[in-house]
Structure formats: structure tokens, C-alpha cells
Simulated scan of single mutants.
Amino acid sequence: MTTIVRGTAGRRLCPAPNTTSEAMESVMPNRKAAPRSLRRASPPPLDPISIRISEVVRTTGLSRTKIYELIADGEIEAAKVGRATLVFVASLRSFLRAHPRPRHGGDRRSSRYESPRSPSSTPRMR
């Protein structure tokens, strides 16, 4: 296969490489790819030290108002940097571990949603 290559001297024909490896060999004929064992592995992703309020809301499901209340009460540690409020991830994790999800038995309703008296125990007026 031939392609037209434009240069300063006008048009000339030159063979086009068929594959990417052939293209690399034509540009760098003596260079060989490093074996996999010698290639650099990408570094593992870093865990963040702090996250913004919007990330806290997205990851925890709590409202912005509740997050700011927890910060004001000292239950979650945060820092103010310029206009950004940064919540420390370690503080957020320890807060969430200290407040586990309640486990319910067979009845999924909690006691606060049940009526204080059942209809059979309500005294009747005569």
C-alpha cells in the first residue's frame, strides 16, 4: 500500500506501514519493547486525607445540614481552607463506625412508629 506524503519538495510516494509495530520499527529500528517484568507498575491509588462536603454528602447519604451540625457539635473533624470545608476521612469513618445501623427483628417498624395503645386496650366510653 502506498500513500502520498506532502513535503517541501512536493509530492512523493512512500510505502505505508501495515501495523503499529511496523510503524515503530520504521521510526526506531533498534529499540525493543521492555519485558513486562521490567516495566514500571502504576502506583497504587492514594486514599484521600480529607474530602469536601459535597463528597461527604454523596458517599454517606447524609444531608449537608446534618454534616454541618455534626461538625459544629465536634462529632466530625473538619478544616476550613479558604472557602472550602474539608472533612477528615479518618474522623468520618470513626463517626460512622460508632453509629452502626440498627438491626431489627422480624418486624421492620421501630417502636416509635407503633401506636402507644392498641385498639383492644383502649377504654370504651359508655
Rank of each mutant, 00 (worst) to 15 (best):
M1W: 07
M1K: 14
M1Q: 09
T2E: 10
T2R: 12
I4N: 06
I4T: 14
V5Q: 13
V5P: 04
R6C: 13
G7I: 09
G7V: 09
A9S: 13
A9Y: 08
A9R: 09
G10V: 03
G10W: 06
G10L: 05
R11S: 12
R11G: 05
R12W: 10
L13N: 11
P15M: 12
P17I: 05
P17W: 07
N18C: 06
N18Q: 12
T19P: 11
M24L: 15
E25A: 14
E25W: 13
S26T: 08
M28L: 12
N30R: 14
R31G: 01
K32M: 11
P35F: 05
P35T: 05
S37D: 02
S37Y: 13
S37F: 13
R39L: 15
R40F: 06
R40S: 10
P43K: 14
P43L: 12
P44N: 07
P44S: 09
P44V: 06
P48M: 08
P48C: 05
I51M: 15
I51T: 09
I53L: 15
E55Y: 06
E55G: 02
E55R: 04
E55F: 01
V56Y: 03
R58K: 03
T60P: 04
T65P: 06
T65D: 13
I67N: 01
E69S: 07
A72L: 04
D73W: 00
E75G: 11
A78H: 07
A79E: 14
A79C: 07
K80F: 09
K80G: 12
V81G: 06
V81F: 14
R83F: 13
R83E: 11
R83W: 11
A84C: 13
A84N: 14
T85S: 02
F88S: 06
F88A: 05
V89A: 01
A90C: 07
S91D: 00
S91Y: 01
L92H: 01
S94G: 06
S94V: 07
F95P: 00
R97K: 15
R97C: 09
R97A: 15
R97M: 15
H99N: 04
P100G: 12
R101G: 02
R101Q: 07
R101V: 10
R103W: 02
H104S: 11
G106T: 13
G106Y: 08
G106V: 09
D107G: 11
R108G: 06
R108L: 12
R108V: 08
R109E: 02
R109N: 04
S110A: 10
S111H: 13
S111Q: 11
E114C: 09
P116V: 07
R117Y: 15
S121E: 14
S121T: 12
P123S: 00
P123R: 00
R124W: 01
M125D: 01
M125G: 00
